[in-house]
């Protein structure tokens, strides 16, 4: 038994807010919520020392269901908000979360630069390869031949986005994949991601049972990656370029120092801030 924590002071369900999730029955996001609470419990995090920032979409409802600090940001903008929060409050454990559309399309540019900045936080993207909240359109990670949306008859015919490869190339310091079909295994990945300094990216497979019911088969397709985490970016690049999207576990652990600017405030009163905005 590998203990993250000999005796958690809070049980996983004590990190839940009491607000009932409104995801569809069978949605993978329920399981991701459970994994996050288990990880926080194992790490013995005090709820008042954690902030979870999300974008827009089904999975971005997460902050409402947790009793940590939460910020339900603008579409695709979870990462800039989380970045600002972490550099100004480095004492907080900062998590960012959202879906594949929010993170890789609307927020795609922020994703790349958040990896590059390497601020110490963990970004969890619940990937279901579809825009679920707007009722089933192709997202950046959708296969090119998926033709169930009338917006893309015959499929998108566009190669999908490979988030792990982009994350590595952009400088993320920790790259892993987990699956909602294995909430306890996902909790372990999240514990490792949160502990690792710098920007940690967790690609979380989370099926949409309503608009992509065929993704129920993912539970038979996921499997542990038959490799140990590497610190060598070149090895990781080859690994990620040949990845079939279903290997689970930590795939890369870099050793770049996290970015944390020196904090120096010259403002003693809030009214001083207003001076800069007076016309």
């Amino acid at each position: 038994m590998e203990n993250a924590n000999s005796c958690p002071s809070l049980k996983p369900n004590e990190y839940k807010s009491g607000t009932k999730p409104v995801w569809c029955p069978g949605c993978g996001d329920y399981s991701v919520l459970l994994s996050i609470t288990k990880a926080m419990s194992e790490l013995n995090l005090e709820p008042e020392n954690v902030a979870l920032v999300s974008g827009i979409g089904c999975s971005s409802r997460l902050p409402a269901y947790l009793n940590v600090y939460g910020f339900h940001a603008v579409h695709g903008r979870a990462l800039p908000v989380a970045t600002g929060l972490k550099v100004s409050r480095p004492d907080l454990t900062v998590l960012a979360a959202g879906g594949d559309g929010d993170g890789f399309s609307i927020g795609g540019n922020h994703f790349m630069h958040a990896c590059r900045r390497n601020v110490d936080m963990t970004y969890i993207v619940m990937d279901n390869q579809v825009y679920g909240m707007t009722k089933g359109q192709a997202s950046p990670t959708t296969d090119p031949d998926w033709d169930k949306s009338k917006l893309t008859p015959g499929g998108t015919k566009i190669n999908p986005y490979y988030p792990l490869v982009i994350a590595l190339a952009s400088g993320a310091n920790f790259i892993a994949r987990a699956s909602s079909t294995d909430p306890n295994g996902a909790a372990k990945v999240l514990v490792d991601a949160i502990r690792h300094p710098g920007f940690s990216f967790v690609h979380m497979l989370s099926p949409c049972v309503t608009f992509r019911p065929e993704q129920k088969e993912w539970k038979k397709m996921v499997r542990p990656a038959p490799v140990e985490p590497t610190t060598d970016a070149a090895v990781a690049a080859k690994r990620l370029m040949t990845d079939d999207n279903f290997f689970l576990g930590t795939l890369y652990k870099g050793n770049r120092p996290a970015y944390q600017p020196e904090l120096k405030s010259t403002v003693e009163h809030l009214s001083e801030l207003e001076q800069g905005f007076i016309l």
Partner: peptide, 13 residues
């Protein structure tokens, strides 16, 4: 004893 979640092999699969 406290047993971490990953020592339980419960999953949807």
């Amino acid at each position: 004893p406290h047993i971490p979640p990953w020592d339980y092999h419960w999953d949807d699969a």
